[in-house]
Simulated scan of single mutants.
Amino acid sequence: MADVRNRVTTVFQKRVANPLMRLMPFQTLLETTGRKTGRPRRTPLGGKRVGNEFWFVSEFGEKSQYVRNIKADPAVRVRLNGRWHNGTAHLMPGDDPQARLRSLPQFNSFGVRTFGTNLLSIRVDLTD
């Protein structure tokens, strides 16, 4: 069942939600470098800035394409409130993703909890 939910959610996000969300000027975006193409890949997501860190939770963990890109090259950019910030992403498997979701904005956290099958916390150390 989780595999079907994962596939349905992925198709919906890839074909409908993400293209629309990327157009919104104040949507938070994570920009990674494609591990195969070397091209920028932008993913809408929710999370929270805490000082010079940005925290979010991947709903599919290491199966997410952007997580695979982070593993290949942790240098990322995050667009927060319309402004881009450079940073270095760190996968945080020791962090409790359920607890982390409770500290993040609830609208996105609800979707991640509902559709997520392999939650993984991620921290981005912002450099500017």
Rank of each mutant, 00 (worst) to 15 (best):
M1L: 01
D3P: 00
D3I: 12
T9N: 12
T10P: 00
V11R: 04
Q13S: 06
A17E: 12
A17S: 13
N18T: 06
N18Y: 15
N18L: 06
P19Y: 06
L20Q: 07
L20T: 03
M21T: 08
L23W: 11
P25K: 11
P25L: 10
T28S: 00
T28N: 01
T28G: 02
E31I: 10
G34K: 04
K36V: 12
K36Q: 13
R41N: 09
R41T: 01
R42S: 09
L45E: 02
G46M: 06
K48H: 04
K48E: 14
R49Q: 15
N52L: 08
E53F: 04
F56T: 02
V57G: 01
V57A: 04
E62M: 12
K63E: 14
K63P: 01
S64I: 02
Q65N: 08
Q65R: 00
Y66Q: 08
A72H: 01
A72P: 12
A72N: 06
A75K: 10
V76I: 04
R77F: 07
R79T: 09
R79E: 05
L80S: 02
L80G: 02
N81T: 08
G82S: 05
N86M: 01
G87D: 04
T88N: 04
T88Q: 13
M92V: 08
D95R: 04
D96F: 13
P97H: 08
Q98H: 07
Q98D: 14
A99T: 12
P105I: 15
N108W: 11
S109A: 15
S109F: 00
S109R: 10
G111T: 11
G116A: 11
T117F: 05
L119R: 11
L119C: 13
I122Y: 05
R123W: 07
L126F: 12
T127Y: 05
D128K: 04
